[in-house]
Design a protein around this nucleic acid. Structure first.
Lengths: 224, 224
DNA sequence: TGACAATGTCACCGACGGGTGATATTTTTG
DNA sequence: CAAAAATATCACCCGTCGGTGACATTGTCA
């Protein structure tokens, strides 16, 4: 066993090299953004030859895919529920929705890399964006089943959350590049408080007189 | 006066060439998207030498800027109001908002180039995206002044329209690449009807009991 | 007519992109 | 130890990019 190669320089470790490449993807994305992402840049950043990207992953697409899996890009159900799922489950529907939107906003704002990818999703579809999309749909779906299915409502809850969720995604993503949207200051806490306040009102008003957790009233006409 | 250059080939017309270049920008954007936009591609598409981009515009940035001005990228106030501004002005506030969101959605959906640019706005800031941004803010601002200032409401109307507007922008832009968002089918009319229905409910519910066009009630507390 | 500007083409540059074959070095295996 | 496989480097190909200088053609004006 001559495993001690003296002052061994140049360690050869496939797994370590793979990791270096995967991490380099994240570094490039956060430093330069998606437009700068490519085999040359990633290999340079990782301090490794670019041919290894092809050898170990099959190409840039697959490397991005691997990058997508080995990170906490997307908030977990736990995080979206605010940490205590049992407590969350006991909240009334309006509170659940309100908390969800707040947690969602914070989760996004704390993930610059996710925002970078979400922005890129608008422009291009590749394995990384597809991977993230799948995660997202899956998480949201499970969240729905776990916490919302129990509530009997005669309103289109999916449409409501779609609009609000889309709105938040847009505002957070956009907030990286612009200061003011529609008169709201996206760089200040006060601006986000206005948004959150409006969403809370929307949720309360949307549910009011239109749904009850106890389906006893015979009221069924939702619109007009 | 030797103005008849026989079967004159090779017409030399600065204005026409400028136009060819500007139009080529639009063609590239709609055919290949923003990632393919560059001096080489544009010149090739226009059938013109790329050096003219520098001579006539000063560079790609300025060409994009020119492109941004010479087109109806952004819906006019007229279009957002649904064609008849006088009639629109007479509507109650909730109807105004409802119509506005509908017209906004349709306006965006009928402008694939605008969507392409809006998508790119998420990723990069350049003269073209800045141009579109300026147009947008300006139009929205004027629209507000013209049709909404008259209404006395004690709710944060800007925050409401910010959330809804952002949501629609996101959904329409995203609808180019994905089919389903949050369980809503973005490719079908039925999906969009669900969204529009939800928005209508939101608007009605948001305004109900919280605002009156006649500010007589002393109720001023909006959110708890 | 000749001078001159306007218009447009062409060839070329250096930098960087994705991708590949040959080769060197380290580790494992027999 | 030697042979073979795994790991990593290097040099190179080809295409495209943004950008520029030299040159050709056309129109204008004196």
């Amino acid at each position: 066993m001559k495993n001690q190669t003296s002052a061994g320089p140049v360690v050869r470790d496939r797994q370590a090299t793979r990791m270096k490449l995967i991490q380099a993807v994240g570094t490039i994305l956060s430093e330069k953004g998606f437009t700068a992402l490519g085999v040359n840049a990633v290999a340079r950043k990782a301090g490794v030859d670019k041919v290894l990207i092809y050898r170990y992953f099959g190409g840039m697409e697959q490397l991005m895919e691997a990058f997508g899996r080995e990170s906490d890009f997307w908030p977990s159900i736990q995080e979206l529920a605010g940490g205590d799922q049992a407590a969350y489950a006991r909240l009334p529907l309006s509170e659940k929705l309100s908390q969800l939107t707040l947690n969602y906003t914070r989760a996004l704002q704390s993930r610059p890399l996710t925002l970078e990818i979400m922005a890129w999703e608008m422009v291009e579809r590749n394995r990384l964006t597809a991977e993230l999309e799948a995660m997202r749909e899956s998480t949201i779906m499970h969240f729905y089943e776990k916490f919302f299915d129990q509530h009997k409502v005669n309103v289109d809850l999916q449409a409501l959350t779609a609009v609000i969720g889309a709105g938040l995604s847009y505002l957070v993503t956009r907030g990286r590049n612009i200061d003011i949207f529609n008169g709201i200051d996206l760089k200040s806490d006060q601006g986000w408080q206005r948004i959150q306040a409006a969403i809370n009102i929307i949720i309360l008003a949307f549910l009011k007189d239109r749904s009850t957790d106890k389906p006893s009233k015979g009221d069924r006409h939702a619109n007009k």
